[in-house]
Design a protein around this nucleic acid. Sequence first.
DNA 1: CACTGCTGGTTCGAATTCGAAGCAGTAGAC
DNA 2: GTCTACTGCTTCGAATTCGAACCAGCAGTG
Lengths: 165, 165
Amino acid sequence: MPDSSPSLDPVQLGAYFDLVEVTSLLRHAVEQQLREAGELSYVQFQLLARLGDSPTGSHRMTDLADGVVYSRSGLTYQAGLLEKAGLVVRSPSPDDERSVTVTITDAGRALLAKVLPGHIEVVSGLLFEPLSRTDVETLAGLLAPVRDHMRSTPPRSAAPRRRKG
Amino acid sequence: MPDSSPSLDPVQLGAYFDLVEVTSLLRHAVEQQLREAGELSYVQFQLLARLGDSPTGSHRMTDLADGVVYSRSGLTYQAGLLEKAGLVVRSPSPDDERSVTVTITDAGRALLAKVLPGHIEVVSGLLFEPLSRTDVETLAGLLAPVRDHMRSTPPRSAAPRRRKG
DNA sequence: CACTGCTGGTTCGAATTCGAAGCAGTAGAC
DNA sequence: GTCTACTGCTTCGAATTCGAACCAGCAGTG
């Protein structure tokens, strides 16, 4: 066939498949650990981690959703769960009436701290075990540009509400 | 606290986060393309792709589930959908009465072929755009060992039925 | 053969997920 | 000011997902 469309050579294909396979396996393992260690789902962990990382301990709903690549409605649901569990608090934003600010609580930080070691252990043992320090640096150097590229490229993700139909 | 547990240095952490972020974004984009192009979910595509790749065009249920890292019950559900859509057929295995063999149909292959170009285009444009040929080779070289390591390590994934409680 | 333990699949119920629709609040044109 | 378009979030319904429980069928022991 005339390759008018961009095709993937075997190496690319292999890299692509390995990428999704590796993350699927990793995610599965991590999910299990998180549930056992602290009754957290992966998304919930990601959310707490992001909040804990923030200087203010808080983020807007939308930013969280975009950050973890989640639907807005899904985030509303998860934020509700986390709030009910006392791990975060939702409050109206001062500057924008529409916006809701999610803030991690002390309990949230505590749980995060409790769960983190085991999490790291799993990631360490599964992902980094077969990689040398140099390997990791190389990997990071490869992924960062890809991430930036994906983030900059058409954010179809944010579901830019269809114009009309 | 005494760091008896293995911790991750910033580079490792960054690589880890970028890894999940990249695949999340990629998956999201691909999912959208697949749904628009052929009414397929990502899992369904993965399943068809695996079947299409097989010399016999078929696999056992369990092997499929393990391959795409999916729960067995989830696979039962998806196999049901695919079968109802005429894309695969389920038949009892000759050698093992318990086992079910899933086989891709011509319609399944046709749909796969129809969807593939767009799929490749998305992956190409998002994942490989910022990577040189050498980069891709490096990436593949890094991921393959990790995949093997994860596959060999305790297959907690397969949910090795708890002994009793 | 009977007995025990394991593997392959399905069914079931409960929890999660998403997109579409809806409700405010904001921003820009005029 | 008013109008129009867009953003931020939630609610709703429908589809998917998982794990626990279950029913065979296989394998090894005796």
